[in-house]
Each structure stands twice: as structure tokens, then as C-alpha cells.
Amino acid sequence: MKEQQVTQILQEIAEQEVSDSLNLWPAIRAQAQSRRRPSRWARVMPATRLGWAFLALALCLALGAAAYAVAPILERVFQIEAGLYDIEQAGLVQELDLSQTTDGITVTLQRVYADANRIVVGYTVSGPEGLPTDRHLLSAGETLSDATGTIFPWEVGHGITGPSDLLEEVSSLPGEGAYVLSFDAAAVKGAPETLDLRLVMDVETYVVPTPVPPTPGVYENRGPLEPVMPVSTAGPFTFDFSVPFTPGHALKAQLLRPARWRK
């Protein structure tokens, strides 16, 4: 028996057992969808009924609050972090103004920064005019990659929609938000002058239910809180851009303490 016969026999055995009509895609698609990461903002969304009540209340308050433009809010959100404030003051932040609109939702990539430790992107999201006040827009599935396809892992993020409980006198218009995301830059090779990057994201719309105020003195067991699912998804929003690389810095995440927490 020759070795070529082994090849032929292996092919015959394999073809007999596994036909050409095999279709694994439905099973793989189902598993892939079930494995999809929850929205990164889900971890900062309220996890209790009381939390949702506070959020809804905050959104209601936003209606009556002074209207601030979204762009200045992004600056404030950017400055929440001590390190980001410092690099902004040092003039190391690259200003962009790249907008995309899909299904009435606009994402604007406004500012970026990169060093040996982190790549930071700041962007705003705004919904169509007349968006019901119970709609809440959150970005999802943000992926940052370079021209070689290297994906930079998401590290940390913060943002604002409605009034801020951290920044006094700051609130966004309903249906608008400002966000800053940081990605781990460890995969950057060497010290290039600039990084050519691509940011891709979807925007999910959530309906935040208006809570019924509890009756004083009456305990109501309403059962477990139902998970909040997005009612629609727009995107993908794709941004190709370049950012100067500043290898000398090593920016670390550190939130500023709000003034009212200081004693």
C-alpha cells in the first residue's frame, strides 16, 4: 500500500461522512449573536429600578435645564480626567470634526490623542429632531484598529447624557451625548510619527421607562428588573483618521474628584 493511497482513502472517508451540503452557518450565527458583547455603556447604566428612576428623573430635569451645546460638553467630559486635562493644556490633543449620519443619528468624532499607553477618542452622538424624550442613544461595539488590522482593546470610557452628576451645571440636550473612550496602545509597534486609525461603532437606541413613583409607606414587590434591550441599532459609523503619536507620554486613567466631594 502506497502513501498516495492513504491520501485517497482519507478523502473517501471524509467525503462519505461529511457531505458538500453541510451548512454550519445558522448554528454559528446563533452562537455569535449570543456571544455579542453587551453595550459597554451597559455597565454604567442603572442596574436597579431605583437607578432607572433616578436616570429618568435626570432626563426630565434636562428638559428644563439650560441648554448647553454638545461640543462644549465634550470638552468638559474630556477634562473629567486629570491626565486628559493636562494633555489638552499642553496642546497635544488633535482636533477633528468628522461627522456621519445614518438613520437620522449623527456621530461626530471631534478629538483624538495617542501615546505609548493609550489612544483616546472623543465623540458626540445626536438623534434626529423630535426624538422622544424617553429615547436614549448609546454607542456600541466600538472597534479601533490600524491600517494593518491590529485591533486596540477598549480600556475605559466615560460620557454624559442628560445632566451630569459629576460635572455641575452641565447637561446635554435630550437625545444627545458626549463620550470619551480610551483604548490600550500596547500593540503600537515602534514610535511612528502618526497612527492611521479606523474607528467603527454602532449606535443603539434604548427606551428608558418613566418610573411610577412609589407610594410612601407601601412596599411593592414588582419582581426582578427586566433587562433593558435596545429597540434599534444604527450603523456602522466608520471613521478613518490620523493622529500624532506621542511616545513620550504614558497617560493613565484617573478621574478627577468633583469639587463638591472635596471637604
Binding site: 454559528i28 455569535a32 472597534t143 484598529s145 479606523r198 456602522p236 466608520t238
Partner: peptide, 15 residues
């Protein structure tokens, strides 16, 4: 880019 449609093509080619 995170588009699962790309996976579909690869599954059909190599499954």
C-alpha cells in the same frame, strides 16, 4: 471591522 457578514463568507468557504 466587526461585521459578522464577513464570517458568513468564510464559513461557507471552509466549513
Amino acid at each position: 471591522r466587526g461585521d459578522i457578514g464577513g464570517l458568513k463568507a468564510l464559513v461557507h468557504k471552509y466549513q
